[in-house]
Nucleic acid binder design. Structure first.
Lengths: 232, 232
DNA sequence: GTAATAGTGTCTATCAGACACTATGTT
DNA sequence: AACATAGTGTCTGATAGACACTATTAC
């Protein structure tokens, strides 16, 4: 337990003061996912050894992991307002050749238009990034995709990739991008219709009949069978 | 990224060598779940401040988190052979009054008869432990329950809570314990029957018609709708 | 035989998926 | 008018859940 030893005076079974053990550096890396041209993409930055890498940072004293992740995105990509989800701690002792560095991978999601116009995005095929990334960052992207799919299968656009109001078509296009598969128009509508709130307003559509605008309903969950429709 | 700075000579934006930042202690805590008398229970040990706590340990140099978790279980509870799953990093700066300690919560699962006979078990109601635990360990238990349910909804007894062969009744009793709700006998059988392998052998039952013994099938997954049946 | 449990046939309500149809806008 | 997209009615096949029935053991 976190509470079994350490602190000045605490000693382990062999009599060694636990506080004296060398401590690892702790880092955070963030896979920022977005949707561009109907496909999932991940934000990358220049890595320390060249090549692409996920934005990340070292944890500072007293800081929480989510704060470090927010700081990394702000300083390295000019991003604010993402919501972070812990994915996994990557802890292979040799994963970073500069020393013993544990890294907590985070997933985040932002609409394309909240990213800088010159942000470098790499396409995600299925659940894997389409070109190599530094370190174990490609594995982190896969975990981020799994996480965003699991969350989107439970609720309607929980990370706000769409604007406040949207049509059912826009919502379906988003889900087709997230789950990387076509979704039948009528079944999809019936699946989500009870989990979104109609606004009276209509979309100023380009062509064809205008579609009604909906907004996310506070806490509405998708039916349990939704994961079947989405992931099969 | 984990690779943006640090190492001798690397400096952050303010010119401070990142390697010089104070580093947190990193610990692991393990919520070992088991089934006793048809209910989920969690293994606890004596905490450093009295009261019950999850077994845990500090991470040692070069060690992986799973190794630290295995060592914690071996030295504090005499357990071997559990499979660990990372749950979340608990990182509140004040979660441990002895210093800055991050703890990676792990979930593990073992059959009751692989635990010591005198192991102290606390019942789990729903997804919360039925009595207070030290630190944030009660939250860890909830996460462990969520994790084991998610894994059991995808596959048949992936953690081997049952012996190598088992009857459909034994499997159903296990799932009723894990999901904390009664499951209809016939629907449950039809749900799992294609994901387990019949052995020719029959259970030496106490009373009634003998039941066939099955074994886990290598990779068989439960249908996607299973989560509906199990969690609704 | 009775008791007890294993396993199956069947009916119903629900729902995904497909298809076609109607509705309402633009040009 | 033609065209395009929104939204709905309806049929079908699959299946969860309920129920009853048959099957096979112990006593």
């Amino acid at each position: 337990m976190t509470g079994s030893a350490a602190g000045s005076g605490w000693r382990d079974a062999e009599g060694k003061a636990l506080i004296d053990y060398p401590r690892p550096s702790v880092a955070v890396d963030v896979a920022v996912l977005t949707v561009q041209t109907g496909r999932l993409h991940v934000l990358v930055v220049d890595g320390p050894r060249g090549g692409n890498a996920l934005p990340g940072s070292f944890l500072r004293p007293g800081e929480r992991l989510a704060e470090a992740a927010e700081r990394a995105l702000r300083t390295k990509a000019g991003l604010v307002g993402a919501d972070f989800h812990q994915l996994a701690m990557f802890d292979a002792p040799d994963r970073d050749d500069r020393g013993w560095v544990l890294s907590m991978a985070h997933g985040a999601t932002l609409p394309r238009d909240e990213l800088p116009v010159d942000a470098e995005l790499v396409r995600v095929d299925g659940r894997t990034v389409s070109e190599p990334l530094a370190f174990d960052h490609a594995d982190m992207v896969s975990r981020a995709v799994d996480d965003v799919r699991a969350r989107y299968a439970r609720r309607i656009d929980p990370s706000g990739l769409l604007p406040d109001t949207f049509t059912v078509l826009e919502l379906r296009r988003l889900y087709e991008a997230v789950f990387d598969r076509p979704l039948p128009k009528d079944s999809f509508r019936r699946l989500v219709i009870d989990a979104i709130e109609p606004t009276g307003r209509m979309s100023t559509s380009g062509a064809g009949r205008p579609a009604e605008l909906f907004r996310r309903s506070g806490d509405a969950e998708l039916p349990a069978g939704a994961s079947g429709l989405l992931t099969v």
